[in-house]
């Protein structure tokens, strides 16, 4: 997989317990990506945020210099 690929991994245990993990999303977009899936599957019981690495986001800062 490419490092920029956005993935959602849904893991279902043999007991039927489900967890959803996002990979490759920037900022809060990971939550948006899974919201519908979470609602479709059932009730969210616990959420853990993971900060895995830093990536250049779309937004940027500009510093204007001059007189």
């Amino acid at each position: 997989m490419s490092t920029n690929e956005k993935r959602i991994e849904i893991t279902v245990s043999p007991e039927g317990a489900t967890s959803i993990k996002t990979l490759g999303f920037t900022g809060g977009s990971c939550r948006d990506a899974t919201r519908d899936l979470e609602r479709a599957l059932g009730i969210s019981s616990r959420e853990t945020l993971l900060q895995q690495f830093y990536a250049e986001a779309q937004s940027s800062e500009w510093l204007h210099e001059g007189n």
């Binding site: 993990k21 999303f25 969210s44 959420e47 853990t48 940027s60």
Partner: peptide, 25 residues
């Protein structure tokens, strides 16, 4: 007089992952 110049500083934002546990319905 020098004209203003803009310097682009890419801002790095965290690529977040999250894990949600679901009670299946």
């Amino acid at each position: 007089m020098n004209s203003p110049r803009a310097i682009h500083y890419p801002r790095r934002e965290p690529a977040l992952s999250h894990i949600v546990e679901i009670k299946t319905e």
